[in-house]
Design a binder for these strands. Structure first.
Lengths: 208, 208, 208, 208
DNA sequence: TATGAATGAGCCTTCATTCAT
DNA sequence: AATGAATGAAGGCTCATTCAT
């Protein structure tokens, strides 16, 4: 077949790329709509319209409306973990690692308000969703924090009597609240700027 | 305490109580159902059945399904603020005030898991709800924390260079995360027990 | 029992009169509400409130909501027929009789706009109602017109080749339309004033 | 007539027809159901079943149940006005124009009893509907009558001292009553046959 | 006789999902 | 792969009517 011989590369692209692109397109539209209307009030047809495709097409890329939400979470989480792993390469100092994690956390949310809304609000729709999330990629994030804290404790820089798991939750909670407040606030300040403040407060609280 | 012993009797005899009792009954049922199924999946008919009344009766006491959720929030918040004001009477020490607020916060949620689920999960359904809540009774709570922090700063016990508003958010975030984690955790530990740990960490972080 | 001995007369009144009065009261309230909101949108509870009684009380006097509408019709019709019979006493001239019927028709509606609305609009809710009405007291009215027309024909004053039944319908239709227009019109003119005009037009149309 | 024979073919081939056909289908079903059960008692699901479609499909073509009723009115009215304009072309004689309008009026209703029921009964449900209708296409009809009457007056064929607006109402009322009576009557006579009788009576009544 | 809280059947409308094209 | 018309189950809410007091 000449055609397949002539443009195998191109073909391969038009098989994976456009598909991936359209998936991405739908996901972006979903983020926008979920942020604007809320998950329950956003209709699949709205998401499709925002993406410039037909309603039925959404179901060629996603199993269900729920799957859209889950996919937003998983795609972003994976992306962030990847970025996190990269940013942490060659950073040995545990406190510095915490700082980088916190900065990444708030920077990612701060650069995409819609996505932040989805993460801070819509993904917490139901306890079902939350249970699912908290027992997955999210745990990896908390674990990374916990590990750094343990390292700092073993290095004698953090008080050992504080439970590392507890400390990780406290740090995460403070960061999370900054994000939520930022979303709800009418003021348009840089969210990422608060990462250092939170870490400073935390580190001082944990220090011997 | 004689007063608390007398009150229920008086209530039971009151003529308006049956009504108040039924409202209360419905609210309890709603908390249970919303916690079990989530706000969107719980049906008004289910709530009514749980309360042992007819579906239509719900609408004699509440304007809409949304109103149920709002009422749960407002009733609890008011109750807690009341308890808070009472507990803070004659407590001058700002750090002690923070501790009491934190303890109350986690104790209230810890003693009623269903209510905690509603507060930690269901009430954050949509940005609409959150905006409404965060600009009301919830602000009062944050403000109380902030005031105590400012007092501690002026007393020279907390570092003055940290924004009190920021610090209040951090403290609230840490407490909030404890509550959320407690809900999602399979382990059945005492949530209230973490209040002191959070406050200790926070106080140390804020101390000169 | 002294009390029953003292006021037996009064008692008898308080048994029949107040009852009749309350029935009347409810009917008046129903007319007002049906005119204001329409039969389907007016709620029984609204009617009761307008009448200053409890919702349940309506059912002590009327079988159902439909019965309210029917009762309005029957009471008014009976009253009007009564008035009509009286007004026609000693009026021999058939054309004069038509004129009196027409004047009564529009005068009655014109002096109570709410009642007119009920008659011109609400009572025509459904074909069921209309069939019921048209085969009852309403027929008596049409018959009275028809008889006068036949009389005029036999007296040689109206053309005999026109069907009297048809002519009665035409006359009624013209009057009815005046009433409907009056209701819908924003202008507040005297409806009764049009009775003569309609009759004049009709009589001229029927004259040899 | 070639034209009328050609048209349906063209229609059947049109791409937009399936949609128009379904809208039409639903409208027909609504007319049938509204006539049979009355607007309030007919359920949207019944209409859909009668049309052989799913309940939800109705809402792809109509905004609401009310919209169904309004659409029946508007579609028919528009159709009739169109037919009226066409039939009146080249008819200069004002009395002839009145006759044509009357014939059209009763012929249209007489050829579709269900539609007639909707027009004579269901559309007069509530004063809201009536106000809406009477201030629109219906006014056009009355206006057309009024204009012909004025013309006849200016030509010296109708008495000038009678208000043309009043006369138009009287004529319409008589015709309207014929239609209503025809609906309620058990006898199956030709409604259109009465148009001439009404006009004859009216014309004679108006003549000098 | 009067009350009005309670009932629960009923209905319009929405919207995730499917499927013929 | 893409469409978008069609589906039909589901659910919030209303309101005529009842009945214990």
């Amino acid at each position: 077949m000449p055609m397949s011989a002539v443009a195998p590369q191109t073909r391969r692209h038009s098989k994976t790329q456009p598909t991936a692109d359209k998936r991405e397109l739908i996901l972006r539209a979903a983020i926008t709509l979920f942020a604007r209307c809320g998950f329950f009030h956003a209709q699949v047809a709205d998401v499709a319209r925002e993406a410039g495709i037909a309603a039925g097409t959404v179901y060629l890329y996603f199993k269900s409306k729920d799957d859209l939400l889950v996919s937003i979470f998983e795609r972003s989480m994976r992306e962030w973990m990847e970025a996190g792993r990269h940013a942490l390469t060659d950073v040995a100092d545990p406190i510095e690692r915490l700082r980088i994690l916190a900065q990444l956390h708030l920077a990612r949310l701060g650069e995409d308000r819609d996505l932040a809304v989805v993460f801070q609000v819509e993904l917490r729709q139901s306890i079902k969703f939350m249970e699912r999330f908290s027992s997955s990629l999210f745990q990896d994030y908390l674990r990374a924090m916990r590990t750094a804290i343990v390292d700092a404790q073993q290095a004698g820089r953090f008080r050992a009597e504080v439970s590392a798991t507890f400390a990780a939750k406290a740090l995460f909670g403070a960061l999370d609240e900054m994000a939520t407040n930022w979303i709800l606030s009418r003021k348009r300040y840089a969210l990422a700027g608060q990462a250092d403040d939170v870490v400073d407060l935390f580190v001082r609280g944990m220090t011997q």
